[in-house]
């Protein structure tokens, strides 16, 4: 074996080792969720000082008990429904406001478009943890405490800035010529916007829907601040806060809940990843 092939082999091995290590670090909590969710309690609750019992694998046959408990013995199904309802409304509001705004910034606002766009994007950086206190004032003024109304009102402030930016970036990547051609062929601006643009902008809208979906699914701070009764909670709030029976953590059910919620979000998010990344880097690193 020559030195070059040896070096290449070594390089390959390092690559695999690094890939495996990084993937393991990222994926380990999910593996742990999976194992915990299906282990029998006898297998689960063995102190870690007992070195003869290997916690990484199923020592006894897997069980669906925890999943059953989650679906029938807790409010989890309710939370899913609550979340989906809120998500639907927030997506509708976001699409209705952010899509026209993004289009306008990309196509109609001219010199001001760039600056306004960046200004709107920067509001995305104002974190919920700075705003939840004034919002709590606002929410009690409006009498929306402990209601979905508060979340539906507030979540669009999270989604609109980024989604406007997203649509703007998307429209910038679409050539103008089709719209201009339609204007020459006899459409007014308004007619172009109403009849030609919708077709062009569909992928942009899709990524807005996905982004708003994931953002609302992930939100914790506002839900924690404004929702107090268990049956009105969202998934990301209810699971860590209210899935505790008395003082006992049902880890199996908890992990099952975490797993079934996060994996679909991750899958959807992955589909649109490239578009999001392009927006995060402010369009600076297009290939």
């Amino acid at each position: 074996m020559t030195r070059r092939t040896l070096r290449r082999l070594l390089g390959r091995a390092t690559l695999y080792a690094a890939a495996a290590a990084l993937t393991a670090f990222a994926g380990f909590p999910f593996y742990w969720m999976l194992v915990t969710a299906f282990k029998q309690n006898r297998d689960l609750y063995v102190g870690a000082s007992d070195l003869r019992h290997v916690p990484w694998v199923f020592n006894q046959s897997p069980t669906l008990d925890h999943v059953r408990l989650l679906l029938h013995g807790t409010e989890f199904p309710h939370w899913i429904l609550n979340t989906l309802l809120i998500v639907a409304v927030v997506i509708a509001v976001t699409v209705a406001l952010a899509v026209p705004a993004g289009y306008s910034l990309a196509r109609l606002a001219g010199r001001w478009g760039e600056r306004l766009g960046i200004a709107i994007f920067l509001t995305y950086l104002i974190p919920p943890t700075l705003l939840f206190i004034p919002f709590s004032r606002l929410v009690s003024l409006l009498g929306l405490q402990n209601s979905w109304g508060s979340l539906i009102l507030i979540y669009p402030t999270l989604t609109i800035p980024f989604c406007t930016w997203l649509v703007m970036g998307f429209m910038r990547s679409v050539p103008w010529d089709i719209e201009e051609q339609a204007m020459i062929d006899g459409y007014s601006r308004l007619a172009v916007i109403l009849k030609v643009v919708p077709r062009l902008i569909v992928p942009g809208i899709l990524s807005v829907v996905v982004f708003a979906f994931t953002l609302v699914m992930q939100e914790f701070v506002y839900a924690l601040t404004f929702i107090s009764s268990v049956e009105k909670m969202t998934v990301s709030l209810g699971v860590p806060i209210a899935l505790v029976r008395g003082d006992v953590y049902h880890w199996g059910a908890l992990m099952a809940a975490a797993l079934v919620t996060s994996v679909p979000i991750a899958i959807v998010y992955n589909l649109f990843l490239d578009r999001f990344i392009e927006s995060f880097t402010m369009g600076a690193v297009k290939g």
Partner: peptide, 13 residues
């Protein structure tokens, strides 16, 4: 506006 100018245009694309 363009639509009333009585013009037609062919773009490079």
């Amino acid at each position: 506006p363009p639509r009333h100018r009585g013009i037609a245009m062919v773009f490079q694309s």
